[in-house]
């Protein structure tokens, strides 16, 4: 009887995994000729992937509960004397981080005086600034030493919300293109002259 109890979930979860893989396969086949595909195919792919997720949820949860897969949300157990010891970096580590931040700033200022293409320059500056922000959040703001639960609550939320702002940029391009068209026509400034 006990053996049957062990075998049954394994068998059922196996079937579900096969179904999920089949749904992913159909999605992949549809995506194969995505170049000529339209919105309908996109819809089909999304539905297939949704089905795959639905099939896969149960086996994944089962594996998670039985500790068969990596559990990102569970920290290592805290040591008995754990909580009031000084978490976080030593003064030496903080000094190194400070030096790294200064060095990155120096690189940014140096790049400012290289006559780079604006887009390239902007990408490098934003990249360096993101690295600096990461260092500040991780070490100075002690994010690296918090619980994983907390990190997963704060960081992805903020990043997703920041990415949503990017929705505005196509509109900015449209605005500029429209201005480019109208600048051939008399503008207020040229009329005043």
């Amino acid at each position: 009887m006990e053996q049957a109890n062990e075998k049954e979930p394994k068998l059922l979860n196996g079937i579900l995994i096969v179904l999920a893989l089949a749904a992913v396969g159909v999605a992949a086949m549809t995506a194969g000729d995505l170049l000529k595909a339209g919105t309908d195919d996109l819809f089909l792919i999304l539905v297939c992937l949704l089905l795959a997720v639905l099939f896969a949820v149960n086996p994944l949860l089962w594996a998670y509960r039985n500790g068969k897969i990596f559990q990102p949300l569970v920290d290592e157990p805290v040591e008995a004397h754990g909580h009031d010891e000084a978490h976080g970096g030593s003064n030496r580590e903080n000094l190194i981080i400070w030096g790294a931040l200064l060095a990155l700033t120096g690189i940014e200022i140096y790049l400012g005086y290289k006559h780079l293409n604006a887009i390239l320059m902007l990408s490098i500056l934003i990249g360096l600034s993101l690295i600096k922000a990461g260092l500040i959040v991780a070490y100075f703001m002690h994010m690296k030493f918090e619980r994983k639960t907390f990190i997963y609550t704060v960081i992805p939320t903020t990043i997703v919300l920041l990415c949503l702002f990017a929705i505005l940029f196509p509109d900015g391009r449209r605005l500029r293109d429209n201005r480019g068209v109208t600048s051939a026509m008399p503008t207020e400034a040229s009329v005043e002259k």
């Binding site: 931040l101 700033t105 940014e108 200022i109 790049l111 400012g112 005086y113 006559h115 604006a118 320059m121 902007l122 500056l125 934003i126 360096l128 600034s129 600096k132 922000a133 500040i136 959040v137 100075f140 703001m141 002690h142």
Partner: peptide
């Protein structure tokens, strides 16, 4: 530590303001 968090955040914001406002507008 909480007051430190606020202070570091202000520092962090400047790490974006400085390149975007100043370094992208250098007069050569």
């Amino acid at each position: 530590e909480t007051s430190g968090l606020y202070w570091h955040f202000v520092d962090l914001v400047w790490m974006f303001v400085f390149p975007l406002i100043y370094l992208m507008s250098i007069d050569f």
